[in-house]
Amino acid sequence: MGIKAHTPPKTNRFNNRKNMPVLGATQRAAFERLIKADVLPLRTGALAIKRGMTAVYNPESGERIPCTVLQLEQNQVVHLKTMRTHGYFAVCIGAGEQNPKNVTKPQLGHFSLQGVSPKRHLQEFRVKDEKGLLAVGQRVTADWFMVGQYVDTKADCNGQGGGSRVYPGKKMAGRMGGQRVTVQNLKVLQTDGERGLVLVSGAVAGPKGTIVMIQDAKKKPWPNVPLPPSPAEINLELRKEIDAKLGDAPKEAQKAEA
């Protein structure tokens, strides 16, 4: 309770005057950096299960290409992240199935609200802009990837060791592995929509049965193969389907009444 001679001038701790350059640490700035670097894929990826490795022969040239077999399991768009709400664009993909009994109530509510089944795995795939957004509920099958295109895969690699921590310098094997490993620019050799198979050349990190994220290659231009249908076209088709269903429903009701 001292006596104050005057009210001190109000200083601003923040450097937020007008016409200041945008701070580099904001989400917006980070987004713009990514746009400038042009490393955001145009369309979403998918979640697959690594089923093992084999080889593919080219019958003409006799060339043998070792490849990894990945299987897409019940991939579906669960949620969308938009610039307006979240500050970036992303498609949340769910894969596999989960017994609703084992899903927490909030998450079950999320799935229920979006109109999709409870998923075993959930993963966000960033896309460049809103043109890359697929409709919620849209299924992503193995046909999503074109034969001849390049993809990046991300997975957790095999872990070694276990148990307690081993201090550096101790004459013992430590813990290693188990970290996220990205393999860039793998060529898609074959796809099979019905069986959900995508064959990519070379190895993918992790043991058999591991979950793998596949997305269009960041650092490779689109090769000389047919372009995939754009998300807008796919959304339009889905819209038409829904409209047709909704259109049929009243007609059927009328028929039933008659």
């Binding site: 897409l72 399991e73 019940q74 079950l108 409870p118 074959q190």
Partner: peptide
């Protein structure tokens, strides 16, 4: 009660052993 939607068709049920299928 929250509505639980049925899962889409499973590719795993169609092809249980992909390596054998590819071979």
């Amino acid at each position: 009660k929250m509505k639980v939607y049925p899962p889409p068709p499973s590719a795993r049920a169609v092809c249980k052993d992909p390596i054998a299928a590819v071979t």
